[in-house]
């Protein structure tokens, strides 16, 4: 197929602070989050965000980690050897050759969320490409209760990708299109993505529009995630990280179901893991130099 398109990717980008001079900093700490779909690197200079990247994960973790950290350091003159401590996290965390330590993404997301959205955050939901994590944390961003679902594709970014592919709709448009319906349809009844696919095809055969199917799938996903969150107990304030945070089709429906609005910040929700990892790196760096 010549017109074969990848409907499920986000756009890549890198950023660094235009005014900060990293050469004046004492503590250069980095966090690298190698996820299943995207990888992020974030550099803290004396505990402040200096630079980050959000790129696609390649075919192997070491290359993706290098690409991410080089992306963050692009045009800054910084080199890998300048970083004093690096923490790896995410799916590929154990395969980052230049990292000093690997820390699970659950701990990193809680810590990152605490920095991004403040110490009042108690519930963190991270919907990644291949998993879904529900975390309860304290005022320091320390995990107090968590669950991670990486066994089943339903309720993960992958479930959404499968649906986007089936309907040939770019994933970034799903949220908006799912609200272009005359009335909110009942949710797709199958949890399993394989069965939901057949159900979606059946609904289309019976005359549903693509947007209706999207709406039904988004609300099924929101419902499923709210059940998962129920297990750890949802407490205000509530924060969503990961790619799904960018999908209003799920976020708004989930907020409605939970009766709580999620905290929005100026930060890109996808960097929470890398940010948390960098914060741990910064802490470990300070511990080590004490």
């Amino acid at each position: 197929m010549a017109e074969l398109q990848e409907f499920w990717r986000w756009t890549e980008y890198t950023w660094h602070h235009p005014e900060m001079d990293w050469r004046k900093g004492k503590r250069l700490a980095a966090g690298i989050d190698v996820g299943s779909v995207s990888s992020q690197a974030l550099i803290l200079v004396d505990g402040e965000i200096y630079a980050f990247s959000n790129l696609r994960t390649g075919s192997n973790s070491p290359d993706s980690a290098h690409k991410a950290v080089n992306g963050a350091m692009k045009d800054t003159g910084m080199e890998l050897s300048n970083l004093k401590y690096t923490v790896g996290t995410g799916y590929g965390r154990v395969n980052i050759p230049f990292a000093n330590r690997a820390i699970t993404e659950i701990a990193c997301h809680a810590r990152g969320a605490n920095f991004m959205a403040g110490p009042k955050i108690r519930t963190v939901l991270d919907m990644g490409g291949q998993d879904c994590k529900a975390i309860h944390c304290d005022e320091r961003g320390k995990v107090s209760n968590f669950l991670m679902n990486d066994k089943c594709a339903a309720g993960t970014g992958r479930g959404m990708e499968v649906m986007a592919d089936l309907l040939s709709i770019p994933i970034k448009d799903i949220g908006e299109l799912s609200y272009q319906v005359d009335q909110e349809p009942p949710p797709v009844s199958s949890t399993c993505v394989v069965f939901a696919k057949s159900e979606a095809l059946g609904l289309m055969r019976s005359g549903w529009s693509k947007n209706m199917v999207l709406a039904a799938y988004c609300s099924a996903m929101a419902h499923r995630v709210s059940l998962l969150l129920g297990r750890i107990g949802v407490e205000d304030q509530f924060f969503i990280t990961g790619g799904i945070a960018k999908n209003p089709g799920i976020v708004k429906r989930l907020e409605k179901e939970l009766g709580i609005e999620s905290v929005k910040t100026k930060y890109d929700s996808q960097i929470a893991g890398a940010l948390g990892a960098a914060l741990f790196a910064d802490t470990l760096l300070q511990k080590g130099t004490q």
Binding site: S144, F146, L147, N149, C152, I232
Partner: peptide, 16 residues
């Protein structure tokens, strides 16, 4: 901390 190991899929919720 309560660590929930396991998963939820279409067939049910299975956590230790």
């Amino acid at each position: 901390m309560i660590a929930n190991y396991g998963y939820k899929d279409g067939s049910g919720e299975f956590f230790i």
